[in-house]
Amino acid sequence: MTLSMHRLSVPVFVRGLRVLSNLLDKAEAHCEANGIAPEVLVNARLAPDMLPLSAQVQRVSDTSKNALGRLTGAGAPSFPDTETTFAELKARVERTIAYLETIREIDMQGSETREIKLTVGKLEVNFIGANYLLEFALPNFYFHVTTAYNILRHNGVAIGKRDYLDPSA
Rank of each mutant, 00 (worst) to 15 (best):
V145C: 07
I159A: 04
P48S: 11
G69E: 06
D81A: 15
Y99D: 12
N155I: 06
P38E: 15
A29P: 05
P139T: 09
T2L: 11
K117L: 11
S168P: 00
E135T: 12
R104I: 00
Q58F: 10
K117R: 14
D163Q: 05
T72E: 01
Q109Y: 08
G35K: 07
I116N: 02
T96C: 13
S21T: 10
P139Q: 10
A33N: 14
D166M: 14
R45Q: 15
V19M: 03
K90T: 06
A169C: 09
V12E: 13
L3P: 02
S9Y: 06
G73H: 06
V57R: 09
R59Y: 12
A76E: 09
N155W: 11
F86R: 02
L53N: 08
V10N: 03
P167N: 03
P139S: 05
E135L: 09
T84V: 13
G156P: 05
A44V: 11
S21D: 15
N126T: 15
Y142R: 00
F143T: 10
D166V: 14
P77L: 10
V60L: 00
I97F: 05
A87N: 05
V157M: 06
A37L: 11
I106K: 09
L118E: 03
V157D: 00
P52T: 05
L138N: 07
R18K: 15
I151Y: 07
I97A: 01
A44C: 13
D81I: 00
I128R: 11
